[in-house]
Computed example of a mutant assay.
Amino acid sequence: MTYVIHGATGAQGAPVVAALTAAGKPVDGLTRNADAVVPGARVVAAGYSSAEELTRAYRGAEGVFVHLPVTSEEDRRTYARNIVAAVHAAQPARVVFSTSGFTVDSPGDDRKRDSGESAVSILANGLVDSGVSHAVIAPELFFENLLMPHVIGPAREQGVLRYPLPAGFPVSWASHLDIADVAVALFERTDVSGVVSVGQYPAITGRELAEAFGARLGRSVAYQAITPEEFRVSLASLIGEGPAADVADSYRAMGALPDRSIIPERSAQKLVGVTPRTASQWLADIGLH
């Protein structure tokens, strides 16, 4: 029985593939490109747009790791429904779903959440209804967002870390490497279900984040809050106008919250004994210079 990993050549999927293959687990790497190379894994061409392809990929799987791509919310809802249909039909032994930082209801979290019509909620609720053993990984924000050229460039060259959140806004940052660690743990810990929050705790502010960058880069780095609209303009050339507008909207909504901190009672630290990397540890692990 194999582990099926969505986005096996991508930012979230590739670290999960690497962690599983390092542990000697058989892996099927799902990609849209049949000619892709996924070290240590068998490549399986299957797209989010086909419930039939996904069903074939999931059937007999020991575990499935899934996350939704960055695209229009309409497409994401379609993909979520296809994944749910495939899980219902194939009945894999275990599914681990990363929300990729999109909000999902979690016990003990009284912050305003979506109406249940978002792609993330459709997928999370569909997993509950499937009867399949599952867990939902819920990060807040990814450190890797800070590696986008318009963010890391000014930090290196000008000593300014620009991001669309207030300087004193606390965030429980996590990395894609942390998601992989937690996903592998959740494949083993089938007794853990529901939402598992992933991120450092206590949460840190933008000023503290800039200090970690400065220490790693060997220069003074200051944090500068920018508007979501400024962030959208910089992001559009990388991911497209529509997705960039959606991201900007999410940061506008985020700015109305007191923080983006995990709920410690549902944390990976407490539930599966995995402590996410600090900013300094992450910067060292990726070898930023």
Rank of each mutant, 00 (worst) to 15 (best):
A57Q: 03
E74C: 00
G60I: 11
R94V: 14
F102M: 15
Y48D: 09
S72F: 11
I83T: 14
V87H: 04
V120M: 01
T71K: 04
L68H: 09
Y79H: 09
V96W: 10
A85G: 05
D129H: 09
R59P: 00
T103I: 06
V120F: 05
T55F: 02
N125R: 14
P107I: 01
P92G: 07
E52H: 01
L54G: 02
A57W: 03
D75F: 11
R111Y: 09
G101S: 01
V128F: 12
A85E: 11
F102S: 14
A89V: 07
Y48P: 02
L127Q: 04
L123F: 08
A45T: 06
S50G: 09
R81M: 10
A61L: 08
A51L: 04
L54I: 08
T103W: 13
G126P: 04
N82E: 09
V96L: 13
V128W: 11
E62R: 00
S121K: 08
D75L: 13
S115M: 11
E73T: 06
R76P: 08
G108I: 10
R77A: 12
E62C: 02
A93S: 13
A61Q: 09
R113S: 15
R56K: 13
Y79E: 08
S115I: 12
P107W: 01
P107E: 00
S115A: 15
T103M: 10
V120W: 03
E117M: 14
G47H: 04
A93P: 02
R81Y: 03
A89G: 09
V84R: 01
G101L: 03
I122N: 02
E117Q: 14
V66L: 09
V70I: 14
A51M: 07
A124F: 06
H67Q: 14
A80L: 13
S49P: 10
L127S: 03
H67F: 15
I122S: 01
V104R: 06
S72M: 12
A46F: 05
D75G: 00
V64F: 02
S106W: 12
E62H: 03
S115W: 10
Y48Q: 04
N125C: 08
G60L: 05
V128N: 14
G63V: 08
L127Y: 12
A57V: 06
D75M: 07
V95D: 10
T78A: 13
T99N: 11
D114F: 15
V128Q: 15
S121I: 07
S115G: 11
R81S: 12
V70W: 13
S121P: 10
A119S: 13
T71N: 09
G60S: 11
A57T: 00
S121R: 13
S49C: 04
A85W: 02
D109V: 11
A57S: 08
R77F: 02
E117G: 10
D105N: 08
T78V: 15
R113C: 07
S118Q: 05
A86I: 07
D109Q: 03
L54V: 01
Q91K: 15
A57H: 02
G108A: 08
V70P: 00
Y58G: 00
K112R: 13
D75N: 11
I122V: 15
D105L: 09
E53T: 06
Y58A: 01
R111Q: 12
